[in-house]
Simulated assay, not measured.
Amino acid sequence: MEKVGIGLIGSQFISTIHAESIKKVANAEILAVMSPTPGHASAFAEKHQIPHHFTKLEVMLAMDEIQMIVIGAPNYLHCEITCKAAAAGKHVVVEKPLAMNLEEADLMIDTCKKAGVKLMYAEELCFTPKYVRLKGLLDEGALGRPIILKQSEKHDGPHAAHFWDVERSGGGVTMDMGCHAFQFFRWLNKNNPVKSVYAHMQTSVHGDKTIGDDNAIIIVEFENGVTGIAEESWTKLGGMDDRAEIHGSEGVAYADVLQGNSIQTYSTKGVGYAVEKAGNTIGWSFTMYEEIWNYGFPQEFEHFVDCVLNDKDPLVTGEDGRAVLEIIYAAYASAGSGKKVELPFKPSVKKPYKLWKK
């Protein structure tokens, strides 16, 4: 069986999810992991039985056996790594958000096109089983014409320090989690163009850690009249909360990724998850089984590997990542001005949060 050789970039939370997910893909093999922090890559490689580990990107990219790299590095490194990987002839999977700004996004897209490699955008909500079924209900006409789309993702804050630092992340919870909702809406609505964005943001709990937004409500208006409502929070205790709704002209559907597919749990110590404890789970929480599959990560990587093996177009592309980034920019601009922002939007700053915190 032909397998796609994969190199992982990063050795923390999201790269653990990548590693565990790729292990479930028959046509894939993780050959190497790279992290510039001494000891991180070697420990990660030992834990996940990966044959090679590196502290220098260029050394890993020189491996001919690697066909695809997966970027789990902080946001501000996505563009540089993508361009180097493309120059080395590697297909690229980039974790959300695609880049820090639209200029970087355009450079990544153009560089990968010129190099003849695929730029794939890792948005797992397009592969999450409950959400795939939700979209199926819409596509088959069971709900009629879509009117309102809703998606919310909430927990008590990010797992790595760079998310709190807006200079390295580009923004707060809207940058970190709003990106999920925006691509989710675009996917449900068949990539209909976005007409306008209106957002309200606050730093309500974590002001001692960040100047970024830790709560946000964003309204996305599409040209075909569909409205998307995103609710994002870094202030919700008790573990992850991830749910969506479709309100149509002939029906309504609700999907909760965790409840109904989990074990209601009370613990005085907190619950350990398959990958890593998801937020503060002391007290009541929802304990996941098959957590990674339930979120669609193995399905996502099975698709990306198939795209490389059989030269298929990915479901979620660099262009999709750029479109999401434009919506993120418009959201921060709206929160900063208190007004609805029309698209297309051409920002004048390199980091989205600066349109809100001026």
Rank of each mutant, 00 (worst) to 15 (best):
K118T: 11
V257F: 04
M100H: 01
F54E: 04
D64R: 15
M60T: 02
A122L: 08
V4Q: 07
V70H: 10
T227H: 06
D241E: 10
A253M: 11
M68Y: 06
K190F: 10
Q183W: 11
M34P: 02
R145E: 12
A87Q: 10
A26T: 08
V252F: 12
Y295T: 07
V194N: 07
S334D: 05
I147V: 14
V59M: 11
E58K: 13
R186C: 03
F286A: 13
E65A: 14
V252D: 04
V93Q: 03
D320E: 15
A333Y: 01
A43E: 11
L143V: 01
P158D: 06
G10P: 04
A28T: 05
L325H: 12
E103Y: 06
M175P: 04
E245G: 08
A85T: 05
N75Y: 14
L77R: 15
K340Y: 04
I292H: 05
S15Y: 08
F182H: 13
S249A: 13
K340C: 06
Q202D: 15
H52P: 11
S334E: 03
A244C: 11
G136K: 13
G228T: 02
I148V: 11
F345C: 02
T203E: 11
E326C: 08
D110Q: 15
T317W: 01
A230M: 03
G144T: 00
V316L: 03
V117K: 06
R322W: 00
Y329P: 03
L237R: 13
S337P: 00
T16W: 06
S249L: 04
H206E: 08
G171C: 13
I282K: 15
D64W: 08
S285L: 14
G72Q: 08
P193V: 02
H200L: 12
F185G: 05
A331F: 00
P193R: 01
V194E: 07
Q264H: 10
E302D: 13
Y121S: 06
V349I: 03
K154I: 01
T128I: 14
Q67A: 12
I66L: 12
E300F: 15
A122W: 00
I282W: 02
F13E: 07
T235F: 00
D208R: 04
K114L: 09
Q259F: 15
K23Q: 13
F345Y: 14
I109C: 07
V93Y: 05
F163I: 03
V226L: 10
E326K: 10
I66F: 10
K23A: 13
S15H: 12
A26C: 14
V226A: 09
C79Q: 15
A85F: 00
L355C: 03
N75L: 07
V92P: 02
L98H: 01
A230C: 12
N191F: 06
R322D: 00
S334Y: 00
E250P: 08
S169M: 12
V349N: 07
K350I: 15
E153W: 08
E326R: 08
S334M: 00
Q202C: 12
R243T: 10
V197N: 05
L149Y: 02
F184Y: 12
S35T: 11
H303G: 05
A244W: 01
N224T: 11
K358S: 15
I30Y: 00
